[in-house]
Each structure stands twice: as structure tokens, then as C-alpha cells.
Simulated scan of single mutants.
Amino acid sequence: MPHKAPGSGREGSIVLLVAADGSILLQQRDDDVPPAGIGRWTPPGGGREPGESPLDTARREFEEETGIRLQRLRYIETVTPEQVPDLLPCRLHLFVADDPVPRSAIQVREGLDFQYHHPSHFHTLPMNPGTKQLLARFLASDAYRGTVGMLQPYRAGVGIILLDRWGRALLQLRDADLPPERFPGQWSIPGGLIEPDEPPDAAAFREFEEETGLLLQTLQLFRVYRAAELPGSLTHIYHIYYDDPDIPEEQIDVREGQAFRYWAPNQLPTLSVAGPAAAVLRDFFASVHYRRLFH
């Protein structure tokens, strides 16, 4: 009979713990599952037990295997063998974390070893095909790029204020499981981090398309903020763009965050709006840029 890894055919969770240099913590397995067999590398995780949520499984499995209880786990997505060929579990929940966990703090409670490996070295590691495809999928995601970006000592970002015909601004409801300093469950301005060597305007077009599935045609620069001007800012420099394409809410594909919705200026005080976003929106609605459009 063919060998099967623990959890094969079951539902499970894995943890993708990312370091500032982009390395990912992998576990070297001691069970024999072809083709790579004993000694293959894979993200830590395991099968879901009765009564557990996928998050509970991820947290428990990581702690059982390493002795570390993660505090900054975030859900990314759930995949099946139809999406990731050669995947062993029938349903796998992916979680990312950026807790600062040095290798020296990790106990090897299961498997042969744990090590941070940079993606540039993945091709040298023994891995089963499903693991290779799963990691490639994660490396291509905004979840990976964004996690690495937020760990950098200097961060530059973009925000996009889009308006409808009534002068309302499109805001994004942020995920509820974000780390506390990243304004979980609050409304904010769509946008994200500028990638290395990327022009700010190109980053604005890219981020909006990644978050909504929509490619904007035009954007205008409103203002560039420094961190000192925006208490609580997640970036050291923040480029704000705007336009009034009047995109219907029903055309927006919510690819990041919980929702997108238009809000009028007089509705903002009734909302839970991320601090830096609230300050930017107040400045924008009081600006000549906005008055020229709607007054």
C-alpha cells in the first residue's frame, strides 16, 4: 500500500511563518512519504481535530511541533487538490504569521529539524510535488509580499481615494484578524505597500486591481504624507491618489479585506475608521481637489 503522511485525505491547517528577509520556516519530516520520503521539507501543520476551528488547528499544531505559541496568525485561503495538484489533504487551510521567532527559540518536538529557508534555495531542498506547488502559490501572493514588506525597516505606501457621482469615497473594511497595530476590522483607504523600484503611481494601479479585480484608467496625485504627519501610520511615506470613476459597488470583487463600500463625508464620524485614513480623508474632503469635483 502507498505511504501516506499524517492527515492525508483529511482536512488540515499549515502555518507559513515569514521572516524579514523573506525566509519561511519549514519542518524536516521524519515519516516516509514518496517521492521525497524521509527528510523532505514542508510547512508545519497537521490535521484538524473534532470541534476545532482551522485557526485552532494551526495554532495547536505549531505549538505542539515547536513549543512556540504564535500570536499573529492570519488566515490566507483554503485550497483543495483541484487548486493545488498533488496536495495530500482533501482540504487545507493556510495561515501566515510574522511573529519574531528566532530559530534558537524553536524546539524540535516533531520531525527531524526546523529551519528558515529562503525561497531562492527551495530548489535545493527535498520536497514533495504538492509542497512545491503550495509554496509557489504562496510566494506569488500579495499575502507573502505584504508580510515581507511590513517587516522592513522602511516602508512606502499608496492610498487610492475613489469617488462616486455623489462624492462618496470608496473605503475598504479591513480583515478582522490583522495584528492590532494594523487596524483590524476598521474602515480604511484601499492601497498597500510600494514594491522595491516600483513607481508610486504604478503601485496604486496595481494595489487597487489586486484588491478589487478592477483596472483603473486614470489617477491624480492628491498629496504625499510623511509618517510624522499621520500618527499611527504604517508607512514612512504615503502617496495618496484620487479619481471619480463612479464604479458601482456590485462590480467590485472583494479580493482583500471584508468589504468595499461608499461613504459620504458626513457619515465618516459614525464609522470606525483607521486613524491615519481618517486624517487623510478629512484633508481630502476639505481640499480644493474635492471641491473642484463636487462643488
Rank of each mutant, 00 (worst) to 15 (best):
A105S: 15
T124H: 14
R69I: 05
A227C: 14
G157A: 09
D21C: 12
Q71V: 11
P102M: 05
A286F: 13
E110Y: 14
R48L: 13
V101R: 03
Q28G: 08
R103W: 08
E63C: 09
L234R: 09
V108C: 15
S23R: 05
A97P: 05
F122R: 12
R10C: 07
F114R: 03
P126C: 02
G7C: 08
P231L: 11
P6I: 07
P190Y: 07
I189C: 04
D56F: 11
H239D: 02
R155M: 07
I247Y: 12
A274E: 09
L221F: 12
E256L: 15
L268N: 07
V33K: 00
F205L: 09
Q258N: 12
G22T: 06
P43K: 05
G111Y: 01
L94S: 02
T212L: 03
T212C: 07
H236P: 07
F208C: 04
H289P: 12
L88H: 05
R223K: 14
D98L: 04
Q28V: 00
I161E: 05
L271Q: 12
V254A: 07
T66D: 11
Q220V: 04
E63W: 11
P199N: 07
P276Y: 00
D31S: 14
P100Q: 09
D253L: 12
E250K: 08
P102Q: 09
W41I: 01
T78Y: 00
Q115E: 10
E250T: 04
G47E: 10
F122G: 09
A20N: 05
D142C: 07
P100E: 13
G12K: 02
N266S: 13
L171T: 04
G130P: 01
Q115H: 13
P89K: 01
Q220A: 10
S13R: 00
Y238E: 14
P85D: 06
T131Q: 06
R182T: 13
L163V: 04
A5C: 15
L214T: 12
A278Q: 10
P179N: 02
E198W: 10
M127L: 02
W263V: 11
S141K: 08
H289Y: 11
T80M: 05
R103L: 15
Y75V: 08
P190I: 01
G275F: 01
P126T: 13
L135R: 05
R168H: 12
P153W: 00
V288W: 14
L73T: 08
A279T: 12
P153S: 05
Q27W: 01
Y242S: 03
R40D: 01
A176M: 01
P276M: 03
P119F: 01
F62T: 01
E49I: 12
H118A: 10
I237Y: 05
L135T: 00
L271P: 04
H123M: 06
G9E: 00
Q115Y: 03
G167P: 01
E256H: 15
R60H: 10
E110R: 15
L216W: 07
Y75G: 03
A176W: 00
D142E: 12
P126K: 08
D243V: 08
S272T: 14
R145D: 08
E110I: 14
T42L: 08
D175Y: 07
R182A: 12
P129C: 03
G12E: 00
F285H: 03
R291G: 06
D177H: 15
F285R: 11
